[in-house]
Write a protein that binds this DNA or RNA. Sequence first.
DNA 1: TGTATCATTTTCGTATACAATTTTATTTAA
DNA 2: TTAAATAAAATTGTATACGAAAATGATACA
Lengths: 233, 233
Amino acid sequence: MNRQSETSDEWIYDQVFSAVLEQRLIPGAKLKESELCSVFGVSRTIIRRILLRLSLDKVVELRPNKGAVIATPAAEDVRQIFAARRLLEIGIIDDACEHCTSEDVAALKEIVNRENTAIQTGNRSGAIRLAGEFHVELARVARNRPIQELLRQLVAQSSLALALYEAPGHLLCVDEDHINIVEAVSAGDAAKSRDLMARHLEKAEAEMKLEAPVDSNDLKSVFADVIEARANA
Amino acid sequence: MNRQSETSDEWIYDQVFSAVLEQRLIPGAKLKESELCSVFGVSRTIIRRILLRLSLDKVVELRPNKGAVIATPAAEDVRQIFAARRLLEIGIIDDACEHCTSEDVAALKEIVNRENTAIQTGNRSGAIRLAGEFHVELARVARNRPIQELLRQLVAQSSLALALYEAPGHLLCVDEDHINIVEAVSAGDAAKSRDLMARHLEKAEAEMKLEAPVDSNDLKSVFADVIEARANA
DNA sequence: TGTATCATTTTCGTATACAATTTTATTTAA
DNA sequence: TTAAATAAAATTGTATACGAAAATGATACA
């Protein structure tokens, strides 16, 4: 049976990737091949290929002979993730301002609107997902695919980081940052856009407690190091 | 037979990746699975996994039902590749200056020395490869893995771009740029380093003729668009 | 001679078989 | 009862089988 590989593959990949973005899959979650097989109705060949792709995205960790788990980025990883995001997202602002068309503005506003709706309706998954989408869309507007691709990965990794290190009691603050950035970019004001983006990213990183690492009410996170040690024993 | 997958996989991947870096594999070259199987003595399962990884690096193009070929980046791709490189490599200079240890300086100088030796002995493959290695090493010195990884891919893609668009008669000019950058970085002079890097990258991109695209004496490149059109027919 | 159609061979895509490793369960001894 | 040892089950890693698609070559016909 030669399936329409391209499509089916992409669909399954997106399903898992989305689950990570929406934090329905959290760090440490085990991804058994046979389970994924029955869920998606394909053979292990396909599932294995998708797990490999996700592992190259640093969203899944492939432990030889021990199966795949959702990745658990260390504090240092998270610092590098955000350092990279600052570099990329501030760096592309010039190009975003330069190339931004009216269609681009519409697309950006559409995302921000849906994001705000999600926030107001208490749809946390949707809000997280759309917030990430916004940042990736901005890279698309800047017309730079390599950077867009990396940002897509970094946004997903940020979602994992947030699940691990988010300061308690934060939860869905309504945020004017995104819409302000859209306005500045569509006005072609690169300096202002850069400044807004810089502060926005700082804010995001500040919401995490990278020193006192763990999320209190999730045993998997609390004992992540123990699990890691035992897993490698 | 459960092979020591990790190692064997990595080795084969590196072999192919290196061949691209050294331009022993040029854009359009066909990678038949069965041939790779016999060359490396593994089954198609392994080869297929490696081809997938290389395709995610944008070094190989996977054409459904038509096999894998070494990628042929379009002129617009190359512009984005170099735009991304400028952004990344200039952007990491601050961190490189900040984190650069004496071991790092030694490692950088070692690469530059080997590069110059390669140039002087007419070892074109080695020179291209080491030039790329230098840029990736600088990202390592900056202590940012995500960016280092992307740069590794972009350097390989640059090698393909060079094979396609290099201005004729260029060939291995001895270059003081790299050693100057090492000096500036190890002295902690970020401003100077940035300036040197910016001009170095501009020079590299200027060596290519992205408007009059093709490499004259390679039919595969000359008729790349025709091939592409027919392949998709 | 050149072109179109058909058969043959090659190559690719997925599922599956089987070996090796890890995990879990059970038994046994202290 | 706990802990170690062993057996059973589950899971992963690689090779291979087989169907589908594409490339190649042969034949018929204008």
